[in-house]
Nucleic acid binder design. Structure first.
Lengths: 160, 160
DNA sequence: TATTGTTATACTCTATAACTATA
DNA sequence: TATAGTTATAGAGTATAACAATA
């Protein structure tokens, strides 16, 4: 658990350069931590033929069967155009279906298939294991504190 | 500070879909929080003609004048090929220079220019203000806790 | 043989404008 | 007019293979 080296000269050696200025920014560590988790998650999901975004979409669809694509886009905070390929991918894999909405022929309701629900149940266990492994050294209190901190940051969106 | 809605039916209305399963994953919130910060940082840096990666590189170069590109790549944890365009960009802007290394003609030493140092001093104040604004509601203790949590997660890299 | 910087390339993520068909 | 889904596209970010020059 050595502190980040804060070197001033260092040009000639093979030592690791580190920078106290960047180190002081929480945003910098937020990005690096997020990236580390995403890499690990991608490896976790690969055997299930899912990406992070398809996993997230499937999760919301399984728990909110019948929602429309625009609702899903809002929930995941992604742009509608980017959602189209996600839905296509999940539908091609037979995990969800697009159904016509009775009184609005513009909209599609998203439903998980039986396979989709079963597949998700398996995947979610793998993702839980991935999280348990990544946060193994975190106490329940630390997790709760981290969680509330992240939610507070998320809430800043668009509050310029 | 309302808790995330955990809806079960919801198909027909215009209500926000939310998912308890995703909500339970720290990685999910880590990604969303990180994205929110990156968007805000990009807006902060735009007036200075910097991106997050060029800002980060400049920060390390200013504090570690003379380091080689491979050292910078290691420090920022980015691949060497991706660093090339970053260095090109900073050099074109006149913020840094590539200098030949005396006893190794393969390598380049990176040095900030006078302009580069002055520009960085300005930018870093703007970035500090950006962080102060984003984390305004965080106590010093909360910041320290968040920081150590993020460092712990970063340390997981490659520890499969 | 190994390393430094580079080129080429590709894949993912994200964002915007504009279209269609409906409402 | 406005909305839902779509198409096309463009810009970042990230990753790998392979090369030339040098060690």
């Amino acid at each position: 658990m050595k502190p980040a080296a804060n070197i001033t000269p260092l040009p000639d050696s093979k030592t690791m350069a580190e920078d106290s200025q960047l180190d002081a920014f929480l945003g910098y560590h937020l990005k690096r931590a997020s990236h580390a988790v995403q890499v690990d998650l991608a490896q976790t999901l690969a055997p299930f033929d899912l990406r992070m975004i398809t996993f997230s979409a499937l999760a919301v669809i399984v728990k909110n069967a019948g929602l429309r694509q625009s609702q899903l886009a809002d929930a995941l905070e992604i742009e509608r155009p980017n959602l189209v390929v996600v839905i296509d991918e999940l539908e091609t894999q037979g995990l969800i279906v697009r159904k016509q909405v009775p009184h609005d022929r513009r909209a599609y309701a998203l439903h998980p298939t039986k396979d989709g629900k079963a597949h998700f149940a398996d995947v979610v266990e793998a993702v839980k294991a991935h999280e348990a492994r990544l946060f193994a050294e975190f106490s329940q209190e630390e997790r709760a504190t981290l969680r509330s901190a992240l939610l507070k940051i998320e809430a800043q969106r668009g509050m310029k």
